[in-house]
Amino acid sequence: MIEAMPSAEPTAGPTLEVTAVDAVDPELRRRLLACWTDVTNAGGAVGFVPPVTPDDVAPVLDALLERVQQGRERLVVLRVDGELAGWAVLSLSLSPLRRHWATVLRVQVHPLRQGQGLGRVLLSGVHDVARAQGLEMLHLTVRSGYGLERFYAGLGYREFGRMPGAIRVAPGDDREEVHLFVRL
């Protein structure tokens, strides 16, 4: 868990907390669903193309939460003053040859919280959770055309490949999938 140190001054900044979550109650599920829907509809590249409704996202979220319950994935949430502000997933390998690394998925900060440096806070927390789990390296992919490579490079990620046309966001609009990794 990462927490900002509380200050005695009334003008102190918000309390930031990044934690791995093993059990998701109905309220947290509702907030995860709302965040994912809002991020997608704001143009975020998190597995869907806008517009989406909660009904579109819910089956994918529920499948993800099932994998979390099975221990195949780790859900990492970012809270600001106790409220969900963003989240990401560590997808763990079932292969004994790949248990030293994981894939980071669905990195998102709610649109109302973007531009405050919280993406960096969330990813730093994801790295801490990964290290605590004994992981040595993380992999993630981004959709080209968003400039996300620069954000991740600032966190130590390096590009190692691109798959042309891997993501079709609309007929005639194919994007590269950019592969990045970081050693922890």
Rank of each mutant, 00 (worst) to 15 (best):
Q70D: 15
Q133V: 02
S93R: 13
H100Q: 15
V104M: 03
V52S: 00
L112Q: 11
A34C: 01
D81A: 10
A85L: 09
L78C: 06
A130T: 12
G147P: 09
Q70F: 09
V49I: 03
T53D: 10
R131M: 04
Q133T: 09
V77S: 00
G125I: 15
D81Q: 08
V107D: 01
C35N: 15
W87R: 08
V49F: 11
G71M: 07
V89C: 10
F48C: 14
A102E: 05
E149N: 07
P96F: 12
V60Y: 12
R72W: 13
R150S: 12
L84P: 08
R67S: 02
P51W: 04
L135E: 12
E83H: 05
A34E: 13
G125E: 03
G82K: 08
P26K: 11
R74W: 09
V60T: 15
R30L: 07
T40G: 07
D62H: 07
A34Q: 10
L112C: 04
L122T: 14
A88L: 03
V57S: 01
P111K: 01
V68M: 06
L122F: 05
R29I: 11
P50G: 03
L123F: 09
R99C: 08
V76Y: 07
L75C: 05
G134P: 08
G119V: 04
E149H: 04
L78N: 09
L84W: 02
P51I: 05
R131I: 14
W101L: 14
L94V: 11
V52K: 00
F48E: 06
Q116Y: 05
G145F: 13
D81L: 06
E66I: 05
E136A: 10
G117Y: 08
L94I: 11
G71A: 14
G115Y: 09
S124E: 10
V77I: 14
Q70N: 07
L75G: 00
R99Y: 02
Q133Y: 07
P50M: 08
M137F: 02
V76K: 03
W36K: 02
S91Q: 14
V60E: 13
V57K: 01
G125D: 03
L32R: 03
H139R: 10
G125N: 09
G134Y: 01
D81W: 09
E27I: 06
G47D: 06
V89M: 14
P26G: 14
L78H: 06
V104S: 11
L123T: 08
L33A: 04
L148D: 08
D25F: 04
V142G: 06
T40C: 06
E27K: 12
H100E: 12
R120P: 07
V77R: 00
V104A: 03
E73T: 14
R120K: 13
G119N: 06
